[in-house]
Nucleic acid binder design. Structure first.
Lengths: 338, 338
DNA sequence: TTGTAGGCGTTATCAA
DNA sequence: TTGATAACGCCTACAA
């Protein structure tokens, strides 16, 4: 693996380093004749500038850091997100560096380590939350980043988020249109940005539909299939069980579906169930799960755009973008009712 | 974001650059007293060597490249793989760089571009196949890599793989132990390394169990739920349908499960179904899908170990490691039979 | 045990 | 329009 350097190209083309560099980075400064000659040498030698040298000189690595969420937390939706992010970054000549805290290392320290090593030009954060410590730290260090998700920071920062409230509201509207009057919600414990937003969407849309709000139809629990199943059981065991159950995440919905089956009822017929995130299993289970899909394509593209803008002009006030999710209806709600 | 350089540390500690460098890279060469002084300055200044400068001088980036498979191809199993890979790499002070071909760019060119830019020290390949062009190219360029998956290359190269044949054989053994005598297989078209291995495991174990081999019980089709469903229908429509259907991938199994339900039969009771990869939906569907889980923890660790060994001594003959998968039994096979 | 100088491959700044 | 030269931050001889 011998490296062809810019020198090799000069030798071959019979010009100076500066000229070769110009051919690569500012072709218009070079005479046609010379340019052709150099381009040829570059081609013949398979020359490509060294990223390390470029980074050193430009003080820019063209790398953006992304802390890969732990598998436990990772709803598989984030994997789609990752694909889109890589694609968008590539469009700007940026690559994504994945990192994770070493065993025993704190999350924040992992970020710090990457920063100090000047390994990346900026970060993409995901799964931000209230009082997210990363946001505070990065703002303080004036280190470039964009977040997928909002947070309550005193200083503004650039983020892209999906309107979870509207997403859940669209589920409720869909159910109301189908004739449902009594709708339950399985949400997360209060205190998470996205969970609260989704729950708020539920409350808002129930009131908007004139169905009033029965707080006892709202169950809050951890995000797992097992918890969803228990929550579903709680709702179904009522003397007046709801005819539809909305959840703030697919995982919970799968649990609810199990509870429905265990109660001897049929999902999509006697009880409608809906999730959020449109994870891969949603289309595989039977009946298919109605869910809310986040526009990961636009999310990835926007995140990278905002980061690039930030990198180019750190002084510019941070932009924020709120995107709308899409309702994917499947048999878990559209199966005919009793 | 001002960068603290090695110079800043010298100034603060009152020593020379060489000494600071030694404190970082060869502490034993430095007197205790001096070392403490320097370490302190490093701490105070939050100094961390610049990756770019280090890379330039060492001709090593401490980055390893991984081409993120396109979402279409990506069985969600690969996402678990990615997590393990990042973790293992971090243990060796390496980070993972994700890349993908730009629109219109060929897969191979994407690799070439990363190579020429000296962006990474080596690659981890996944989803290798017969005559994998990447393997040939990297061997020819003498560029370090390890593969997750085998390939038929004239020259040896380092790989880690999971014994798919044994995995499927363990499924068959499990079914035979449950009393099944007539077992069908839904496989992929011939010509993929992993698909052929899995099918071979089926054939081998059927013969080993003394059940002979009815080739008409083997259906080969593309990897999708829809194709699995059609294949399942073919098998179930026979005048002597099998009592169990083994598939080479979960996706196919989900399709088969649908076909079973559509035939008015119950998965796990009248017909046993099994998959491969233990993807997330496998534990969510009802009944749960018996599947074969790959040991991603060991896979990730071994891949990085092999790559690091290769980086340190490119001359050493390439190692290969074959790991055993684990059978995860769920209700799709263990539900009581008729 | 510590300091000094040269070079890693680029790009930017001048002069020519 | 082109060529020479000085950074960029680090490591590794080698000299002191």
């Amino acid at each position: 693996m011998l490296r062809t350097t810019i020198k090799d190209v000069c030798d071959k083309a019979g010009v100076s380093v500066g000229t070769v560099s110009n051919v690569v980075n500012a072709p218009h400064l070079v005479a046609d004749e010379t340019r052709r000659k150099v381009l040829r040498a570059i081609e013949d030698l398979h020359y490509r500038p060294s990223r390390a040298a470029r980074s050193l000189q430009a003080q820019r690595t063209h790398l953006i850091g992304y802390r890969l969420p732990d598998p436990v937390d990772a709803s598989s939706a984030l994997d789609v997100f990752l694909h889109r992010l890589v694609g968008s970054a590539a469009g700007h000549g940026l690559d994504l560096v994945l990192f994770a805290p070493r065993p025993g290392q704190s999350d924040l320290d992992a970020y710090r380590e990457v920063i100090r090593g000047a390994g990346v030009d900026g970060f993409v954060l995901s799964e931000t939350n209230y009082d997210d410590p990363r946001v505070g730290m990065l703002i303080e260090l004036a280190f470039p980043f964009v977040a997928f998700g909002r947070a309550n920071s005193p200083s503004p920062f650039p983020w892209v988020d999906v309107d979870g409230a509207t997403g859940v509201a669209s589920v409720v509207a869909h159910l109301v249109a189908l004739g449902h009057q009594s709708i339950g919600l399985v949400g997360w414990p209060e205190g998470s940005e996205s969970g609260d937003a989704r729950a708020a969407g539920f409350i808002r849309s129930m009131e908007a539909a004139g169905l009033g709000l029965d707080r006892s139809l709202i169950v809050r629990t951890e995000n797992s299939m097992a918890h969803g199943r228990m929550a579903g059981r709680v709702l179904l065991d009522r003397h007046d069980p709801p005819s539809a159950i909305v959840t703030v995440q697919d995982e919970l919905a799968f649990g609810v579906m199990t509870a429905v089956a265990e109660a001897g009822l049929t999902v999509g017929k006697e009880v409608a169930v809906a999730g959020f995130d449109d994870t891969p299993p949603a289309s595989v289970v039977w009946p298919g799960l109605t869910s809310v899909r986040q526009p990961f394509d636009a999310i990835g593209r926007t995140l990278v755009d905002l980061l690039v803008a930030r990198l180019e002009d750190p002084a510019r006030p941070p932009q924020t973008v709120l995107l709308e999710p899409e309702l994917i209806t499947r048999a878990s709600t559209t199966g005919s009712r009793r």
